[in-house]
Simulated assay, not measured.
Amino acid sequence: MGDIRFTPQFQHVDWVDGKDRVRAKDPNGFNARFSTIESDLVQFSTVVAKVDAKLDQIENRPTRRELWLPPQQLAGPGNATHGWQVTTTGALVSSPGLCTGVMDLLLPEGVRLLTFRAIGQTTNNVTAAIKLSRALFGVGSFPQAMATVTASGAQYDVTVDVDPAQALTTTASFRYFIDARCENNFVAAVTISTFQIVYSTS
Rank of each mutant, 00 (worst) to 15 (best):
H82V: 00
G90V: 05
R112N: 12
Q43G: 06
Q121C: 10
M103A: 13
L98C: 00
F137G: 06
R134M: 12
L92N: 03
R117F: 04
L69E: 06
A91C: 04
D56I: 12
T63G: 01
G76K: 07
P77I: 02
L106P: 02
N124W: 02
Q121S: 15
T127N: 04
S141M: 06
A49T: 11
T115R: 13
L98G: 01
T46Y: 05
L69M: 11
Q121L: 11
M103Q: 15
D56P: 00
F137W: 09
F44N: 12
L113Y: 06
L74T: 00
V51W: 04
F137R: 14
L69I: 15
A128E: 03
T123D: 12
E66H: 11
L136M: 12
A91G: 05
T88S: 14
L74H: 02
D104M: 09
F44A: 15
G78A: 03
R117D: 02
T150L: 14
R134A: 07
G83S: 00
L105D: 05
K50V: 00
P70K: 11
L74E: 01
N124M: 09
F142C: 03
A91S: 14
V86T: 10
W84H: 01
P96E: 05
L114H: 08
T87N: 11
P62V: 07
A91L: 02
P143N: 07
P70Q: 09
G78F: 01
R134P: 05
T81M: 04
A129I: 09
E59A: 15
D52H: 08
H82F: 01
V42I: 09
A80C: 00
T148V: 15
Q57D: 15
T87Y: 00
W68G: 03
L114G: 04
A147S: 14
R61T: 11
A53S: 14
D104F: 02
A145P: 10
G97E: 09
F44Y: 10
Q73R: 09
L55C: 07
T63M: 07
N125Q: 07
T127E: 08
N125G: 03
L114N: 13
K50I: 01
D52W: 02
